[in-house]
Design a protein around this nucleic acid. Sequence first.
DNA 1: ATAGCTTCTGAAAAGGTTTTCATCTAGGTA
DNA 2: TACCTAGATGAAAACCTTTTCAGAAGCTAT
Lengths: 333, 333
Amino acid sequence: MVSIKDIARLAGVSASTVSRVLNEREYVRSEVRQRVLDIVKERGYVPNHAARSMVLQRSFTIGVVIPYLFNMFQRQLFAAMEFFLEQHGYKTQFFFLRWSESSEQAFLRRLKSEALDGIIFVHELDNPSIYHYIKEINLPVTLCTFERTEFGFPAVHIDEEASAKLATEYLIQRGHRDIGLITGEHFTFGYQREKGYKKALAAHGLPYNPELTIRAASYNPEAGRAGMLTLIKRKQPLSAVFAATDELAIGAIKALYESGVRVPADVSVVGLDDIDISSFTTPGLTTVRQPIFEMGKKSADLVCDWISRGHTTDKVEQFSTIIVERESVRTIG
Amino acid sequence: MVSIKDIARLAGVSASTVSRVLNEREYVRSEVRQRVLDIVKERGYVPNHAARSMVLQRSFTIGVVIPYLFNMFQRQLFAAMEFFLEQHGYKTQFFFLRWSESSEQAFLRRLKSEALDGIIFVHELDNPSIYHYIKEINLPVTLCTFERTEFGFPAVHIDEEASAKLATEYLIQRGHRDIGLITGEHFTFGYQREKGYKKALAAHGLPYNPELTIRAASYNPEAGRAGMLTLIKRKQPLSAVFAATDELAIGAIKALYESGVRVPADVSVVGLDDIDISSFTTPGLTTVRQPIFEMGKKSADLVCDWISRGHTTDKVEQFSTIIVERESVRTIG
DNA sequence: ATAGCTTCTGAAAAGGTTTTCATCTAGGTA
DNA sequence: TACCTAGATGAAAACCTTTTCAGAAGCTAT
């Protein structure tokens, strides 16, 4: 590997001068500059990243921290983040937290060992000690899909509760009274969406029947399918289901189909997220759209803002959500 | 940030000794070792990654290079790779190639600037110059989803052609004669799968009708939907479609459904990949299974093998594929 | 002629680690 | 007693950059 010293020697100048040329500093004769540039090009010289990041005390990379459930929603979010982070000149480094103490420790170690320039947290962590640490070392950060106002971190999110309420009310307005819920555990959004569902019922004077809610093991289609199957077994009156994520909804529809229940003729289903596969299911999934791409972009912009500005902007961006009507809901009565 | 020197000072020893303790070298009194370890723990010291990687001339990270089509197949592949790479003690760094000359140059620059310990290439690149360069600098590498025997790189892949042939023959054996093809461009697997389709027709004495093949703009559901729509417009006799990827198939089914054509009653569809959403579509997608998880694992194992062994194993692992029967195909006649 | 700028350049330090080499001590051997 | 060896430790070099500081050369203003 060719180093800056090699270039210096070849050009008959010092390493400092080469560095000045490369970093576009002033005070170097244009004739010298050209000579150095030529040699750099000829030899294919590229600055060593480790050396640079050591002396500069930064790594030009943003960490994206995410609990290990690598689903379709996250895929879309990542694609957006990576794209815009790169536009800002940063590399993206993913950290998949695997929900164990040791994985959290490992994360903290990596956080210290690599001089990350910033972090995006996707989904809320169980253990707030990490946030305290980040706060303490004053590392640029933004939260994505949730907020924690007490830390003063910038955040981008939707109103989870209101969105779930919107989905549920959509069903109520179409005459549904016996509405099931399939949600998951461990993540705040799961609980918030459950709360939104309950609020919708309450707002319309509908009783809450615990027999109609399923707390699935995860948020993926398989969990949705299993959840729907047990819901069916309970033999409660049921005309519609709100699934807390589109993936759960897709699984639920499959379970209904397998059980000979027609969607939406017999049971209606609405999801939340609007991942891109949702417009390709049959029937098309009626759901609440979360602007995934824009949220990814905004997250990237906010960390980079903090970094370049040198201090937090403390900005919380709440994106609004809308119903997107497809074919999985019917109007009754 | 606390450095090795701080620990040394605190423990009343030299930095060398601390380093020896941390790297589990011999020749350090157990009493001293314990003292150092205690202080390391107390201060939360973690070695600086940039410094280590500079002196060691390695980065403990594997690059995963992939053309920018971040689809569901790749999501599953990534999840597997990242998981096993971490088990081997490596970090994963993704490089999304965005199909421009400049993006390839940028990739090469990053390749040189970060001392990657190894690379996994997913999907074949248009431009073989990168492979030549890798070969030249003798960087541990493995190819995933394709092979290039002339370079002697280890590879994990399936027989694309045979798998497509298998899918097509499955339709032929069920009495289908007028079989459409929806594939995509730019990627070798797309062309190989097309070839497999043609071979199946030929092997069974069926004529190849170019009016029945669609070369879609991409490999995602949207492209599949658009492709199917134009195929329908051509008004050729058609009883089945082979879609080169499951995502294309999902889009095709949607288009059929929108056009009032029943699947599988009127037209049968088979895909290839068996991504995990395929068992959740309605009807369930009959497809050819590619062992995605195992392939991801194997790719990780092979690079790590090369690294630890110090020389290439030159091993090409061809995974076998099987039909997984679901509900999107009917038997006629 | 002197002092004081400007422009350009190089030497050297710094950043945090690993490793080599040298040194020191204690114990064993001739 | 003199010498050697093994174990334990520290000093210093090396990895590759950037940046600070100092100095040289050429110019302008006094």
